[in-house]
Design a protein around this nucleic acid. Structure first.
Lengths: 200, 200, 200, 200
DNA sequence: AATGAATGAGCTTTCATTCAT
DNA sequence: TATGAATGAAAGCTCATTCAT
C-alpha cells in the first residue's frame, strides 16, 4: 500500500481513538515511522487529511444511497443495507464524534451539511417506503418526528458505542446499532419484520 | 459578581459556542477584559475551569434528581422536571458536545461516567414508574431498550439543536427536546399524558 | 526603553546589515536575548516588524517634507534639509536595498509606491524651485530627466555606500550622498550654490 | 536544448521576476516540469545555478568589454555598445537587484566586486576617451564624480525600469536606460553626439 | 486581586537535499 | 539522465503558564 493510503489509514485510526483534536501531524508521522516532511509531501497538513477522509466517507455513503431503491427491496435487503450504512459511519466515526471541530475547519460547514442532509433524507424515505408498503401505521406528524429521532439516534449511537459503552467487535457494534434503530420503529409496525436470515 | 464567577460564566459561553478545544485561556481573559495572570490567579488553567463547570453541572443534575420522587409526582410535575433537567444539560452543553475531549482531560473519565450513570438511571426509573402507574405497556426488553434510547436522544438532541438546527431561544429548545423525548414514549402509552397546564 | 522599541531597533540594525531576508525572527530574539514567544507577544511576526519600520520611515519622510517650503528656503537651509532626508533613508536603508522583497510582502506594493512617489515629487519640486529662483537653466525635458536621475541616484547611493563602498561613519555617508546628488545638478547651475556654512 | 541549459534559462526568468530569494528549487523544477532530483543531478543546488548565471553574466560583460577599443570607435559604435552592455545587465538583472542576497552567498563578495570593478572601469574609461577626443570639458574631479554617477545610475536604472516603472519591451527598456545615462553626460558635451543611425 | 511582559515547549510548515530505482 | 518519495533541519507561530510588580 502506498504512503498516501497508509497516512489516511493511520490518521483515521488515531482520530477515531483519540479524537482529531488530540492528534498532531507529528503523531501521525510517528505512528507511520515517516518524517514530518514526508507527511507534508503527501498532504498539505492535518486539515487536508481530514478533508480527504471526509470525502471518502461522503463518497461511501453516497454510493450506498445511490444504489438503494427503497420501494423495491425486501425486508432482508433493507436490513443488510442498514448494517452497511452504519458500518461506514462507524468506520469514519471521528467525523461524527468531533462534529463541532470539523464544523469549524476548512472542510467544515458545507460538507457536514451535505452529509447530514443525505442521512436525514434516508431516514425520512425509509419511513415513507414502509408506509407505502402498508407496514407501519402512523400520522404524518409521527412520521416526521420518528425520522428525526432515527437520524439523531443513528449519530449518537456512535458516541455511545465507542466512548461510553464497553469495547466490542465492530460487527457486533453495527448490529447493536441497527437493532437500536429498529427498536424505535417497532411499536408502529403492523407485523414483525422478517430479518431472520441476516440477523444471525 | 466576583471574578471567579465571571470567569466561569464567560468560559461557559465561549465553550458552548466554539467548543472547548477552540477556546484558549487568552480568549477567556480577553472576553472578560482581564489579564491572563488574573485568570491563573483564580484557576490553575483551562482544565480547572472545565473541571469546575463539570462539578457545577453534576451538582445541578444531582440536586434535581435527589429531590425527585418519580412515584409520587403527577404528570404535570414530571413534565416540569424533564424540562428542568434538559435546561441544565443545555446550559452546560459543551460538556456533552465535546464529550471525547472532556473524556481525555483531567476531569475526564471518572466524572463523565458518574454523570452519565445518573442520567441513564433517570430514564430507566422514569419508565419503571410509568409502568408501576400502569400508564405504559411494554416488555422488560422493550423497557430496557427504550430507556437507553431516551438517554441517547437526550444527549444528541443537544447536538442537533445547537449545531445542526436553526437558532432558537433556549426555552424553545428545551421544550422541543422534551417533546422529542416524549415522542419516543408515546407509542407505548395507554392514554395521552396530561401536560396541558405546563406545556404552554 | 521598552521591549517593543528594542525589537524595532535591533531588527533595523540586523536588517540593515544582513538584509531582511537573511534575518529570522529567532535571530532577532537571540540578538535581544528574549524568547521567541516574547517577540511574538509584541509583534505578530517579522512581517509586522517590517511594516512598523516602514511606517516609521514613511512618517519621518512625511514630516520632513511637510514642513518644507522649497520656494522660501535659503540655499543653506536646502542643504541641511537634503542631508536630513538622506539621513532618514540611510537609517532605514534595508527598505530600499531589499526593495523587491518588501514589494512582495504584506506592507508591499502600496506602501512602497506611496513612499517612492513622495521622494520623486521632492526631486521634481526641488528643480522647479531652483528654476523659479532663476538658479538653473534647462529645458522642461532636461528638468524631467534630471529629476528622475536625482531620485534614482538617491536610492542607489545607499546601495553603493553600504554594500559596495568602504565602511564610513553615517554622517560622512550622508554628506557624500548629498554631494553626489548636487554634482548632478551643478552643470546646470548659473552660479555656485552657497552651502558654505553648513557643509562643515 | 539540453536540460542544463533549460534550467539556467528557467531559473533566470523566475529570479528576474520574483527575486532569487522568493524562488525555491522546487519552483524551478516545477516550472520546467522536471523532478527536483533531476535539478540536483545537473546542479548541486540553487546556489550553483546562481553561480553559473553569475559566471555567464561576467563572461558576457567581459567579452563585450574585451573587444572594446574606446579610443578607436565612432559615436554610433559607442551607442551600439552601450545598448549591448545594458542589454546584458537587463538580461541578468536579478544579480543586480538582489545584490545584497548574492553578496552573502557562495558566489558572493569576490565575484560581485570583480563585476562591479569592470563596470566602473568602463564608465571611467568612457569619459576619459570622450575627453581625449575633446568632446567633453570637465575637471578631473567632475570626471571622477560623473563616472561614479553613471555607474550607479546604470545599476539603479534596472530597479526603476523593472520594479517601479510601467511594463515595457526589453529593447525599449534598453534604449531608455542608455538615454538616461547619456543625459548625465550631455551637459558637459561640446556638441551633440551623433547617434542618429542607431537610435531609431 | 490584578497586571502584562516574559518564557519555553511543542506544533505546523517549508525546503534544500538525498537516494533508491 | 530522470524520477519522486523521503529526510531532517530550521523557520514560523501558538499558547499554557509563570512571575515580578
Amino acid at each position: 500500500m502506498g504512503t498516501r493510503e497508509r497516512i489516511l489509514e493511520a490518521s483515521l485510526a488515531l482520530f477515531n481513538h483519540q479524537g482529531s483534536g488530540n492528534v498532531t501531524s507529528l503523531d501521525i508521522a510517528a505512528e507511520l515511522e515517516i518524517s514530518p516532511g514526508n507527511l507534508y509531501y503527501h498532504y498539505k497538513g492535518k486539515e487536508e487529511v481530514i478533508a480527504q477522509l471526509f470525502k471518502e466517507c461522503e463518497l461511501a455513503v453516497g454510493k450506498l444511497l445511490a444504489r438503494l431503491d427503497l420501494e423495491a427491496i425486501s425486508e432482508q435487503e433493507y436490513w443488510v443495507f442498514l448494517n452497511s450504512l452504519l458500518r461506514v459511519c462507524l468506520h469514519y466515526r471521528f467525523l461524527f464524534l468531533d462534529f463541532q471541530a470539523i464544523e469549524q475547519s476548512a472542510v467544515g460547514h458545507r460538507g457536514n451539511q451535505r452529509l447530514i442532509k443525505q442521512l436525514r433524507n434516508f431516514t425520512a424515505h425509509s419511513l415513507s417506503a414502509l408506509q407505502k408498503k402498508n407496514l407501519v401505521e402512523m400520522s404524518a406528524q409521527q412520521r416526521f418526528e420518528l425520522a428525526d429521532n432515527l437520524f439523531l439516534l443513528g449519530l449518537s449511537w456512535l458516541c455511545f458505542e465507542t466512548t461510553l459503552g464497553p469495547e466490542k467487535e465492530e460487527e457486533e457494534m453495527v448490529r447493536t446499532g441497527a437493532n437500536r434503530l429498529m427498536s424505535l420503529v417497532s411499536p408502529y409496525l403492523k407485523r414483525q419484520l422478517n430479518f431472520a436470515d441476516s440477523a444471525q
